[in-house]
Computed example of a mutant assay.
Amino acid sequence: MATPDYILDLRADIGSKLLPVLGASAVVLDAEGRVLLGQRADNGNWALPGGLLDPGEEPAAGAAREVLEETGVEIDVEYLSSMRVGRPYRFANGDEIVATTLVFRARAVGGKACVNDEESLAVDWYAPDALPESVPVNHRFAIERALSGNRETWFVRD
């Protein structure tokens, strides 16, 4: 995952101390009800597309930007499905973050699913009952929640 310039600037001032970050991802469905996933280049796991928001960026727009950047798919964001506060994470270089991720339900409206940047090894559509084994539990939960049809935002702490 490429580190945004604003994070690099902050790190120049605060070093590797714990930094709270805000991210957005999307459970993107195609016309057949399949879920869009990307195979991450950093760990090989299949996951929902998403990433960090830019300062001042509207979260739904940020989710749409991240999906397009990573997968080549244009989306229409329908609603905020869930919000997850992760555990503190330490990168190999010593930098620490704790991420709050907003997960949106969305529909594919254009583009073509493909590897569109260096963050993914592969991109594909999967039936919700046939997800790759490496999809993390918290992403499975987000998918299940988005597919439930319940528009009440769900909050979960990892």
Score class of each variant (00 low, 15 high):
5 D>H: 04
6 Y>P: 10
8 L>D: 03
8 L>V: 01
10 L>A: 14
11 R>A: 09
13 D>F: 13
14 I>L: 06
14 I>A: 01
18 L>W: 00
18 L>S: 02
19 L>E: 06
20 P>H: 02
20 P>R: 03
22 L>V: 12
22 L>A: 14
23 G>Y: 03
24 A>W: 10
27 V>Q: 02
28 V>K: 04
30 D>E: 04
30 D>W: 05
31 A>F: 05
32 E>D: 15
34 R>A: 09
35 V>W: 11
37 L>M: 03
39 Q>R: 13
40 R>K: 06
41 A>F: 04
42 D>T: 12
44 G>M: 12
50 G>F: 01
50 G>C: 06
50 G>I: 00
54 D>P: 00
55 P>D: 08
56 G>D: 05
58 E>M: 01
60 A>Y: 10
61 A>F: 05
65 R>F: 10
66 E>R: 10
67 V>W: 07
70 E>H: 07
71 T>R: 04
73 V>E: 07
76 D>Y: 03
77 V>A: 08
78 E>Q: 09
79 Y>S: 05
85 V>G: 06
86 G>K: 07
86 G>N: 10
87 R>W: 04
92 A>R: 13
93 N>I: 10
97 I>T: 08
98 V>Y: 01
98 V>S: 00
98 V>G: 01
100 T>I: 06
105 R>T: 13
107 R>E: 04
110 G>R: 09
110 G>V: 12
115 V>I: 14
119 E>A: 15
120 S>D: 00
122 A>N: 14
123 V>W: 04
124 D>L: 02
127 A>Q: 15
128 P>T: 00
129 D>W: 05
129 D>Q: 09
135 V>S: 10
136 P>S: 07
136 P>T: 09
144 E>F: 01
146 A>G: 12
149 G>S: 03
150 N>Q: 08
150 N>D: 15
151 R>W: 05
152 E>W: 03
153 T>S: 04
154 W>Y: 14
156 V>R: 11
156 V>A: 09
